[in-house]
Design a protein around this nucleic acid. Structure first.
Lengths: 214, 214
DNA sequence: GGGATTATCCAGCAGTCGTTGGATTAGGAG
DNA sequence: CTCCTAATCCAACGACTGCTGGATAATCCC
């Protein structure tokens, strides 16, 4: 491995080192977890010395936080864009709200299937509550609020009082993460699994909120 | 901490040291994970020296495996007992099969609510595929097969061909684990949460397999 | 050109890790 | 009592950990 050029970076230079380190660290943390990844592993994966990692990202805990913030910010961005589209459909009636709900869930599933490391970090977050202070406020809460809003709109006229919407949303979210984990654990493209999971999700929603009232 | 008596244990002695170590290690591993728990932590929690831990449970990896085997064996035992009861109901018709399905799921939820460390280890197992070789064969496969069998029986006459039963089962299992994690993360007794989750589960099953065909 | 700034690496510190060899003590077997 | 076995702890080894002080090099600003 050739030694990287030291010194101040040129004005319109290549990809900044900090992003390189964050990408490498995210992949490693998602696969092995906080304690099983050494700073020297991250440095080697990024083609950089340990001191350089520390120079750009500070403490190991700060690096960990930065990885989470980066991944979850991307997810939140995608979901809020899809949520904005869905929100406009809310005013158009129950059928449109139901379709918007289905679309939003599809976007969610697509996103996680494409970026399994998001699921890995999401799960690790639940197993390490002490390490993440404000992640829920910045990430989970807005997502839950949006989907609950759509669920409530879809249920309007359906007289759905229980279970509480947040229970339904949480269960759906965990089912999706379980699907992503199962995809990663098996071999093959998983095209069939993806198709069947979408079928399941739509049946799940239709079962709770039948599209046509008898 | 007084020094423990060395020497060969007396004939009808107290709780064997190995169980003490395994219990302490299980609690620590469930809370912090493999790498964040040192053998000295386990030893201290069990009131024992490090060398004693090694003497009884061998390598750290072997200790980890022993914890998993212990916890999952308990779960499998409970589920197979409930499954046996359910299996006899299968021959009595669709309505009885549906009720048996509901009962089995209730047993599953009750068990995990009472022993949250089972959920913690279950999740960690998915995040560390390299550390667990044969756990799926001994634990997950029989459970999945049983619930799928019940689902298929419940669906008989309902013309359910998709989604594939294992997708439904997996999603339900992950939803339950998500419920347990949420219970552990919140404060209070969580009695309301438990009640609402059961409502959700039963609605979930009824949505996929309506109890009365219209 | 001459600082000032920024980036990179080398070398090493102090601490913890899992693991082990050996000493000590207690009970069972004869 | 004497031998054997089993249980416990102490002390230490080598390896690895996160982190850092300082040297060097490349660029920017003037």
């Amino acid at each position: 491995m050739p030694r990287r050029r030291p010194g101040r970076p040129r004005r319109g230079d290549q990809r900044p080192t900090r992003d390189l380190v964050l990408a490498a660290a995210t992949a490693l943390f998602a696969e092995r977890g906080f304690d099983a990844v050494g700073l020297r592993d991250v440095a080697a994966a990024a083609g950089v010395d340990v001191a350089t990692v520390a120079h750009h990202t500070g403490t190991k805990a700060e690096l960990y936080d930065a990885c989470f913030a980066r991944v979850f910010a991307a997810e939140r961005e995608v979901l809020e864009a899809a949520g904005e589209r869905a929100r406009t459909a809310l005013a158009s009636g129950r059928a449109e709200a139901l379709r918007a709900l289905h679309d939003l869930v599809d976007v969610f599933v697509d996103f996680l299937e494409d970026r399994p490391e998001t699921t890995a970090l999401w799960l690790r977050r639940w197993l390490e509550p002490h390490r993440h202070a404000d992640l829920d406020q910045r990430y989970a809460a807005p997502l839950y609020a949006l989907v609950e809003e759509l669920l409530a709109a879809a249920a309007a006229g359906g007289a759905l009082v229980e279970p509480a919407p947040h229970v339904t949303v949480r269960s759906l979210v965990w089912a999706v993460h379980g699907h992503v984990v199962a995809l990663a654990a098996q071999d093959g493209s998983g095209a069939r699994e993806r198709r069947e999971f979408r079928t399941f999700v739509h049946r799940f929603l239709d079962g709770l909120y039948p599209p046509a009232t008898p």
